[in-house]
Design a protein around this nucleic acid. Structure first.
Lengths: 231, 231
DNA sequence: GTCCACAGGATTGTTGGCAATCGCGGCCCG
DNA sequence: CGGGCCGCGATTGCCAACAATCCTGTGGAC
């Protein structure tokens, strides 16, 4: 339990940001995080630095850090970068697929289908991320996996909003089904094309999204009992 | 001069690593850097943390940091990621090109041609990096530019070795000439294809490179010790 | 009534010192 | 003569106090 300090602090913050417990723009007061996590201030500081390096939070000198708010335009840019990287991962995954990988992928796809059938959008959103993680590990391409992971971390909010749009999960699920099938068929070209098509669809959906949603903190049912947000 | 402390330290280290002053695997002793830069230890520490976050140096708990040695396999992976991102940048650059951009690009290309003609490989290497930076600013795609910049920073050593191979600069220059011409012709498809072709060529050149002495992170014998290190 | 100056509180940034850990070399023992 | 144990120097990790900066709210002058 020696090195859990900074690990805990960083994991805590990253989880809170990714989970959406902390709304974009929320100030990260060091003392507050210290009180919440129990770790020392320097650990909190390092954690915030790390997250700032990944673009998850924004620092301004002498004014502290706040969780970064990514505009729709930025989200599109990020997804534009993610598209070819995920295509690369899909291709490599199709090339390097093992039987165990295939079983996992197919099982995961069934779970996703079930979630959509049950209308559990929240769970579906999580499952999408896990699917991409699964593809990444199957691809055994550390660099691309890392890059995609960092990009994805900045998009959680937009991805979430996207999956709430009526009809979107059906489209998404169909695209991802094709992706998984192409990979499990050991078909790199088709897998690459499927990934590209999916993210083109994501970009289109993002673009036609409400241009700039007012900074209303009206996020839907989200039990945030651990952290209270300020004005 | 308030925030120059960590700025100086980070810039100093990044420059030293990028320039190759510090050979890969070299230990970064905090006190040493303090003596060299004159900044406080905490600033040095933060700088090292930042560089570790970007993958330029490697940290191990209680053992300090050393500049990360990227194997040929990793270099290939990195370039595999860089390929589609640079293709994206090339496309966007061709779409968003202004007259001023075109002038700069053409002038830079002339400089590069001259450098190759003069056989100044070192300078040519620098100019290549500047060309990609120029394309990135022309593309006005912050996310892709940032990603590519970070990837490139890890490759300096390999890029350098590459440009020393006989005949390589000629091939490279031809490819980059095509890239610049496609961009200045406002031809996104051609620009994207040119960028992709160039980096496929880089990957091929890297792959057939001498499979360098696979160094185990423990204590590899360093064959070429041009700089003083260890004691 | 409005604007400016200023002080108080809050928050971040920085420094220095102290504790923990690692690598290494000597020393003792088999 | 070889191998394991232990102490020491070097280096990193951590913490608490100090200094600098910013925001806010108040009071006074015009």
């Amino acid at each position: 339990m020696a090195s859990t300090a900074e690990e805990t602090a960083e994991a805590f913050l990253r989880g809170a940001v990714s989970r959406g417990d902390l709304p974009p723009g929320h100030r990260l007061v060091e003392a507050e995080v210290v009180a919440l996590t129990g770790v020392s201030r320097s650990a909190v500081r390092r954690a915030i630095d790390a997250l700032a390096g990944e673009g998850l939070v924004e620092r301004v000198h002498n004014k502290g850090a706040r969780v970064r708010v990514v505009s729709v335009a930025e989200a599109v840019e990020i997804t534009e970068c993610r598209l070819p990287l995920e295509a690369l991962l899909a291709r490599k995954a199709a090339e390097r697929l093992t039987d165990a990988d295939a079983d996992q992928l197919r099982a995961h796809l069934r779970t996703m289908t079930a979630a959509v059938g049950a209308g559990d959008l929240l769970r579906y959103g999580e499952l999408i991320q896990q699917l991409h993680a699964l593809v990444a590990t199957t691809a055994r391409h550390a660099v691309a996996a890392d890059l995609v992971g960092r990009l994805q971390a900045q998009l959680v909010r937009h991805q979430f909003r996207l999956s709430l749009r009526p009809g979107r999960p059906r489209v998404s699920l169909a695209e991802l089904t094709e992706l998984v099938e192409a990979i499990t068929d050991h078909d790199p070209d088709r897998a690459e094309a499927a990934a590209a098509a999916h993210f083109r669809s994501v970009i289109a959906a993002l673009s036609e999204s409400s241009p700039e949603p007012a900074p209303e903190p009206g996020r839907p049912a989200r039990p945030t009992s651990t952290t209270e947000e300020e004005r």
